[in-house]
Amino acid sequence: MAALVIKDLHKTYRNGFAALKGIDLQVEQGDFFALLGPNGAGKSTAISIIASLTNKTTGRVEIYGHDLDRERDQAKRLIGLVPQEFNFNMWEPVVEILVNQAGYYGIPRKLAFQRAGEALQRLGLWEKRQTQARWLSGGMKRRLMIARALVHRPRLLILDEPTAGVDIEIRRSMWEFMREINRQGTTIILTTHYLEEAESLCRNIAIIDHGRIVEQTSMTRLLSQLHSELFLLNIAAPIERAPDLHDYRTTLVDSETLEVEVDREQSMNQLFGLLSAQGIEVVSMRNKQNRLEQMFVDLVDSAKEKRA
């Protein structure tokens, strides 16, 4: 069964701006799904409509088979949302925010405190439970919103840039955490501008731009479309000119850094063979761009050409 089905979704804001121009999307149960797109693409708009925060103009949204218009309550109970902007009462103690949230979903107060406690433990906020939300750091506020989204145990969790402004260590623990709840059966939809994050977490992906889906596919299939990858090689001894490496296109970035484009059919072994034949010793190597990032830029560019 699909966790989320969106059919021909349109949204035109009151000022006349068309933020969504007919979106179709399907996210399967248990999936870890990336919804990507440049700033202003319409990601948050789509998410707000799914979460009943914004009224759609036309179209249909179904959560686990429950139509958001006709079976509103059933649909709503299945969704958890971590929004892009902070939206909790800054003056309320952390634990009360979670207990209230649980209450809105019909969880009796005693059980609500228990659930809140669990969620706070899991997100490392237990020490801060009596602190007013406004005294939390930015990263803690994000984690508070994650904890809040989980107290009613949603089956579809939507995270709108949950790792923005979160330090590396906590970001990693959040990834681990998201993987874990996904393994336990929660479907996750994630938006992020850190594409390596999407690449390492998500199995399926949709790219949205200017209110339209420009690509929806699996992560592996998308990455396999990549024609070539750019590598940066650090070399041991400075050179003055880029060496001739036959079919490999090379550019000298600076005297100790060489950029090499490797096509999908070409092999790395051959590249290194050519390099050592010319007496160039490679100290280290890295991708110039994240692979998904490269793909993403291509797709958004080609969408732009199509519009033009």
Binding site: A51, S52, K76, L81, N87, Y104, Y105
Partner: peptide, 17 residues
């Protein structure tokens, strides 16, 4: 008004209330 201003009205809009 505070609920609106700080956007936590959204908690109630999302929930089945």
């Amino acid at each position: 008004f505070g609920t609106k201003l700080q956007h936590y009205i959204e908690e109630l809009l999302i929930a089945p209330v």
